[in-house]
Simulated scan of single mutants.
Amino acid sequence: MITNVPRLTSADWDSWYTASWPTLYTAGWPSLVTDKEAEYFHRAVRPRPGMTAADLACGNGQWTRQLAAWGVKVTGYDFSAEAVRQAAVAGLQDGLSYTQWNINAETIPAALLPGSLDLVTCRHALPFLEYARALTDVGRWLKPSGTFYALVRVAADQDNDDADDGAAAQNDSDQEPFHRGFTEAQIDSLGIGWTHRTTYRLSAHNCGIVLRGYGDTATTPRHTAGETSRLPAPPPTPPAIEETRAR
């Protein structure tokens, strides 16, 4: 079955952040940063002060602010003017900024130069993007030692002939356009073109994905999409600055 997934507009997201976010924030969904996510992120990525980063589809900046709190110099990019406004209201500081950008349709910002970033992150948003093209761009922006991190919702498998074609992912139903995720098959396909991949479950419905070495076959054997590595032992990790109530 081939399903056409409707594109959400910036106005759709503006309305969602204006009307829905306060209720969802209280309920702990969708993107509050938990101590568990912070710990696993530190184990897999090992962020350090002075790193440069881009946070794609940053929403109102909760994860962007978390990266800044760890000393990362980061810019958050989002489609929604209302999300960017909320992020700015929550606080700006040296090394923390936000820019409105339609990742799927607009020209890449001048700041995202090839080989310029240590880290690119994208939480709960990759299924909304033309993710095959987006990951190619991410691979170009990263330094050779750079890392891509995504947190995605795990969706139920569907009989979808477009399951791994790199287009925007299928949402669970037409009534839940803001709740998109990836199937297991789509998650498996995300390692193609990268030499190293780590995946881990944070819960039954959330999966962390870490990719390194885009297109680098000279120094590291290419892994297949289904291969993953173990997480290293955890370093001392500061707690998340924003934490969901529901674990």
Rank of each mutant, 00 (worst) to 15 (best):
E130D: 15
E130M: 09
E130L: 12
Y131E: 00
Y131G: 02
Y131C: 05
Y131T: 03
A132T: 08
R133V: 13
R133M: 06
R133Y: 03
A134M: 14
A134C: 15
L135E: 00
T136I: 08
D137C: 05
D137G: 06
D137S: 15
V138K: 06
V138W: 02
G139W: 03
R140D: 13
R140N: 14
R140V: 14
W141Y: 10
W141R: 00
W141T: 05
W141H: 11
W141S: 07
L142M: 06
L142H: 07
L142A: 09
K143E: 04
K143N: 04
K143C: 06
K143L: 14
P144H: 14
P144D: 05
P144I: 09
P144A: 07
S145P: 12
G146C: 03
T147S: 14
T147H: 06
T147M: 10
F148K: 01
Y149I: 00
Y149P: 06
Y149N: 00
A150Q: 06
A150Y: 01
L151R: 13
L151A: 13
L151S: 10
V152L: 03
V152A: 14
R153Q: 12
R153S: 14
R153N: 13
R153G: 14
R153M: 10
V154C: 02
V154K: 02
V154H: 07
A155L: 09
A156R: 00
D157E: 15
Q158E: 15
Q158S: 15
D159V: 13
D159G: 07
N160L: 05
N160I: 11
N160T: 05
D161N: 12
D161R: 09
D161G: 15
D161I: 15
D162N: 13
D162C: 09
A163L: 10
A163M: 10
A163Q: 07
D165Q: 04
D165C: 14
D165M: 04
G166V: 14
G166M: 07
G166Q: 03
G166D: 06
A167S: 15
A167D: 11
A168Y: 05
A169P: 09
A169L: 01
A169C: 10
A169K: 01
A169D: 04
Q170A: 14
Q170H: 07
N171R: 02
D172N: 11
S173P: 11
S173Y: 13
S173C: 12
S173R: 03
D174F: 13
D174M: 13
D174T: 09
Q175G: 06
Q175K: 15
E176R: 08
E176Y: 13
P177E: 07
P177R: 00
P177M: 10
P177Q: 07
F178I: 00
F178Y: 07
F178M: 06
H179K: 03
H179M: 04
H179I: 03
H179L: 04
R180T: 05
R180A: 12
G181L: 03
G181S: 03
G181K: 04
G181Q: 01
F182V: 01
F182K: 00
F182M: 08
T183Q: 06
T183W: 06
T183H: 05
Q186L: 03
I187K: 01
D188L: 11
D188Y: 13
D188Q: 12
S189G: 10
L190G: 08
L190P: 07
G191F: 10
I192V: 11
I192R: 02
